[in-house]
């Protein structure tokens, strides 16, 4: 027994080492959203398209849609724009933009130059609505179902791989859930 006790340090060490080895492949930087399966928070915000008129969740599509957080200062947003443009062309799903902590003119310029995949661009210039969404930087992408409930969130840039492997299956799942 007392001999076995001496092996305790090495056992503890190897348990820790296994956790550390697993830890190397854990992503500890992307926060899981606490808003999954909760309704999209309420808002009263302007949009790029409709002047000073204040919009709310009632003005959003009543089918599943994507809510993309973007800004003209955001280089990765430039990378994912072609994917959203393609999705728009193929009419896969409506995409709503949340122009996050940006200036209106810069945002309009950016859309003009790079193409506008968004049906509507809600303006969150103060970043206050972003906080309600648990956003901590652009780009972030939410998938909202027909009842206005958040079903999926992706943090960071979306490339073709992620679109195919994560976003499309999530859209399919939301549609299937909505039908049943």
């Amino acid at each position: 027994m007392s001999k076995l006790k001496l092996f305790l340090p090495v056992i503890i060490f190897f348990v820790l080492a296994i956790f550390m080895w697993r830890g190397l492949y854990q992503d500890s930087r992307t926060l899981p959203s606490v808003l999954i399966d909760r309704p999209l928070p309420e808002f009263q915000l302007r949009s790029l398209e409709l002047g000073d008129q204040l919009l709310s969740t009632a003005d959003l599509p009543d089918e599943p849609f994507i809510l993309n957080i973007w800004g003209s200062y955001c280089l990765p947003c430039l990378q994912e724009n072609p994917i959203f443009m393609a999705a728009k062309d193929q009419q896969i799903i409506p995409i709503i933009g949340l122009n996050y902590k940006d200036r209106d003119e810069s945002a309009r310029n950016w859309l003009e130059i790079n193409g506008n995949p968004f049906e509507l661009n809600i303006i969150d210039d103060s970043g206050r609505y972003g906080i309600d969404l648990g956003v901590y930087g652009a780009p972030e992408t939410f998938l909202v179902d027909a009842n206005g409930v958040i079903r999926f969130k992706h943090i960071g840039v979306i490339n073709y791989q992620i679109w195919e492997d994560e976003i499309m299956p999530a859209i399919a799942a939301v549609r299937a859930g909505g039908d049943s």
Binding site: S2, L6, V10, F13
Partner: peptide, 23 residues
């Protein structure tokens, strides 16, 4: 992975040696 392997080898080995020789 490399450093962890090194850690496991050196520290794991030392602790086993310790367990054997400490008595």
């Amino acid at each position: 992975v490399y450093i962890l392997g090194f850690l496991a080898l050196i520290i794991g080995g030392s602790l086993v040696l310790y367990a054997i020789r400490a008595p």
